[in-house]
Nucleic acid binder design. Structure first.
Lengths: 247, 247
DNA sequence: CGCTGAGTTGAAGTATTTCAAAAGCTGTGG
DNA sequence: CCACAGCTTTTGAAATACTTCAACTCAGCG
């Protein structure tokens, strides 16, 4: 996982889909702002812990961030993963407190933008505001789908759903191998399951010929249709709902 | 539950905390917009079903709305309840499809504002935009807390948490009786539990002297501290995080 | 007065967790 | 190149939290 700021130009160029809608000067303004707050991070690095003061927005350019919360008992729930083109807003309704932990799941690059700067940008760049609005709608969609399954779905359904979601968010190449940088423990924390049960469930799926699991979460979905069925999803529809800018 | 449009003036006057930040002309603009889209609703009425086309934002002035999703099996998960001063955005990342059902849990009044109008308002009224931003942060906070408990909390913790949350959102008078317009079935759909188990759990709490449950969800919390402990919450902190505009 | 929907309780069933132990990789230092 | 430590995955067996099924009560209501 090679991530350094040298790739900046590429990242910024294709970042946040802004190219299509904005004129050149707006694009510059946005890219400058991003660039000024750019920061490379290493796997395991903490951005913020829940309860701390934190008034920044994090725009992820590369790598995975984990958003999590935990109980006094030490039980961890992962609320979401943020990756390329995702925007993380950890600040609570009071405008200062972070409501969850933000930690790097892999190496990567992000822009950490102070809230005042962020508001100004949103106000000055209507195309950005629009983009952020669409992105938030997409985030709400995928969290709604997950909450449904967290509350009412079986372990099998939850695992299947997560895999379909990852596959889509990682570029939608079913049939090919894609890598999910998570341990079974982390996947369990995401799905509200024990790591042991995640293991049993994935093994069952792979024995049923629905997917292939090589070491450390390299995944090849052999039967996308069956997997989507188990997840209770229409993949086309799901894709449109959770990917901002999709038709 | 008497809700008709005659109370309009009152609602609009105190609605959405806008009075404090906006100047008079802005306030007028906003109130006119609200008023133009005002609509009374009756318990059980459907605003929209998941999957339908829907490009409106719903601002709740009075009453409860239920936001829910369901599986093919018929299992229902309630994602959230919206009440006084809440804003509901049911539209997915594609800008057209509704991602959940919106249904009236009680009689009430809401403004149903088309998305284009809404965007224009947000752009023309910076104080409104700011308010909406804070409200969304509060919504994220309370959903994060819930997701944590849905994934990792016991039934007892989930029930306790929901009750504390309702108590706070309904005006924070612990020790007094407050009414939650939900059946145990609905509460179960909210918490990812069967109605039977909700019953057992609330009974246990009431037998332990932590709360009093009179018929049909009139609740008096006798031991707020114990209830918050069971919920794994610091009530002060929790209040600040989930109530927009709180200090 | 009998109907309907909601709450309550018991008993049996089941999905998932927990505990425990072994096996498989990965990196490190000798 | 091997040995060892540390972490992840895998598997089995026992425990448990919650669900499902079913029966009964109770209140409101036509």
């Amino acid at each position: 996982m090679q991530s350094n700021l040298n790739d900046r130009a590429t990242f910024l160029e294709e970042s946040f889909l802004l190219s299509s809608t904005a004129d050149l000067s707006q694009k510059r303004l946005w890219q400058d702002a991003l660039q000024r707050h750019l920061r490379a991070f290493e796997k395991g690095a903490h951005f913020v812990h829940e309860g701390e003061n934190w008034s920044f927005v994090v725009c992820v350019l590369d790598g995975w961030l984990t958003l999590s919360k935990s109980l006094d008992t030490g039980q961890v729930q992962i609320l979401d993963f943020a990756m390329h083109n995702d925007i993380v807003e950890p600040t609570a309704g009071d405008g200062r407190t972070a409501i969850f932990n933000v930690q790097a799941q892999t190496d990567g690059v992000a822009a950490v933008i102070p809230l005042p700067v962020w508001s100004a940008l949103l106000h000055d760049l209507p195309p950005l505001a629009q983009l952020v609005y669409a992105t938030e709608a997409a985030v709400r969609s995928r969290r709604a789908e997950r909450t449904l399954r967290l509350g009412k779905g079986s372990a099998e359904m939850r695992v299947a759903h997560a895999l379909v979601e990852f596959c889509i968010r990682l570029g939608d190449r079913c049939g090919e191998v894609f890598h999910v940088p998570l341990t079974q423990q982390a996947l369990g924390d995401f799905l509200g399951l024990s790591s042991v049960h995640v293991c049993r469930t994935t093994r069952r799926l792979s024995r049923a010929g629905i997917l292939e699991l090589t070491d450390h979460m390299d995944i090849r979905v052999l039967e996308p249709h069956k997997l989507a069925d188990l997840a209770g999803l229409d993949p086309q529809m799901f894709r449109r709902e959770i990917m901002p800018g999709a038709k």
